[in-house]
Design a binder for these strands. Structure first.
Lengths: 246, 246
DNA sequence: TGGAATTTGTCCGTATGTATG
DNA sequence: CCATACATACGGACAAATTCC
């Protein structure tokens, strides 16, 4: 069964992991079919599948039903007051795109009202969208905007829904609404299991978790203009922060 | 079976979640036994278990086999250049403690050498410890120190291993080594499945994930003095960042 | 110290409602 | 209308771990 106390599937897993680490296999590359890997290592296909499943747990590869096994692109998401998702993706030379799923007029729930510094029940616009990089869904975003502060935000997003040009959406829409500058005030990151909706929208395996990132954006005067909760498929992204000065 | 298209277990789950949210049930509280909850809601115990299992997925409760069901304490971990884990825990009025598992002399692997700005193979000291809050393990920490920069760091930690006083360990040890001030230079957060070792050390359910946080600490002159990888049980902690000024 | 009681986790099975083709 | 699959809900029994006396 095992050569030296290490199970076969683990040896295979380590071999593939080091090949990814050394660059023999690059992000986005497609691995040989599991049957071919089995013959390469001289083991049963089930043993290869176990190794692959382990690599998937480590976030190194992603399997697509009927499609193949791919080396994961882990997107480094720089956290700062002014970083935007699209800019992060572009810098990593990925093709970003967004699809607006819905634009709803909604009365603010307690949590949203507190973040936006308005009264519970005040009118808000809830925009739900999916962000994608190189055809792979990365995040599911729910953003609340206060209607009183941004009266035309709803129709602006609804117009955008019709057109094909949905890139750099949030920034452009806010710009058109007269908000030329905005930044993050606070960020909260936690982990949880995905909802059924998230599993479908993000096309993620059922046992994988999500990063839930809660962000409040404020304009140049420090007045809240957006409160959003974004779910990231946990294996497709990592967060980085740099602390230059004090 | 269902009242209005919403499953019974989901209704129960939402009821309990709102009771936690409203403070009827406080962090650390023990819930009634599943059998009692079943009779309260007038359902089978299995239905309650499904609701509880869902709440556990959301990180709201934690179950202990034979022990009971407890409302989770999610520790808000403030991310900044100078925040320390112990200070976060104390501020949240938890009793922090650490247990040093091992102190090893090790030649620096490539990744560690790069972070510490030394040559691969240079001597380092690897300190492995578990941080605990209110008896619940929170994180498993692996910290590399460059021996050349901190010649006595190994023996300092080894002495500490014998004694019972292991609180505020890292700061005190570095202070004794002449490093009076240090701060974080960079942080990287990702998610992955736990290793077997982590499952045991952190006493976490097998299907739960971990936050892997990679931190490089530098002294007042910007010279790296520690490179560490910490695994947090994902449901027991959340990360927050505040961006005050620019 | 030790054993009984308590409590969660999991297995067996049965029945029903829902969605799909 | 039927066949199939799946989620929901219930009931009983026991294992495993903790608490209590």
């Amino acid at each position: 069964m095992d050569n030296n106390g290490v199970a076969l599937w683990r040896q295979i897993s380590q071999t593939l992991a080091s090949e990814i680490d050394e660059g023999v296999l690059s992000p986005g590359d497609r691995l040989p079919a599991s049957a071919d890997l089995a013959s390469r290592f001289g083991v049963n296909r089930h043993t290869v599948l176990k190794a692959i499943s382990h690599l998937q747990g480590e976030g190194l590869v992603r399997t697509e039903r009927g499609g193949g096994i791919y080396v994961e692109k882990v997107i480094p998401y720089r956290m700062g007051a002014r970083t935007r998702l699209e800019e992060n993706l572009l810098e990593f030379s990925l093709a970003p795109s967004r699809e607006i799923l819905s634009v709803l007029d909604l009365r603010a729930p307690k949590k949203v009202a507190k973040a936006l510094q308005i009264e519970p029940g005040d009118p808000t616009v809830l925009v739900t969208l999916v962000a994608t990089a190189d055809e792979i869904p990365v995040s599911l975003n729910q953003n609340y905007f206060p209607t009183a502060r941004l009266p035309n935000i709803g129709s602006a997003f609804r117009e955008l829904t019709e057109s094909k040009e949905q890139n750099l959406a949030t920034r452009a829409v806010l710009d058109a609404q007269g908000v030329t500058d905005f930044r993050r005030r606070s960020v909260r990151i936690r982990g949880r299991t995905p909802t059924q909706n998230e599993e479908q929208r993000l096309r993620m395996p059922p046992n994988e978790w999500v990063f839930e990132v809660e962000v409040t954006n404020v304009d140049a005067d420090g007045i809240p203009i957006a409160y959003g909760v974004t779910s990231f498929c946990i294996s497709r992204v990592e967060f980085t922060m740099e602390f230059d000065g004090e």
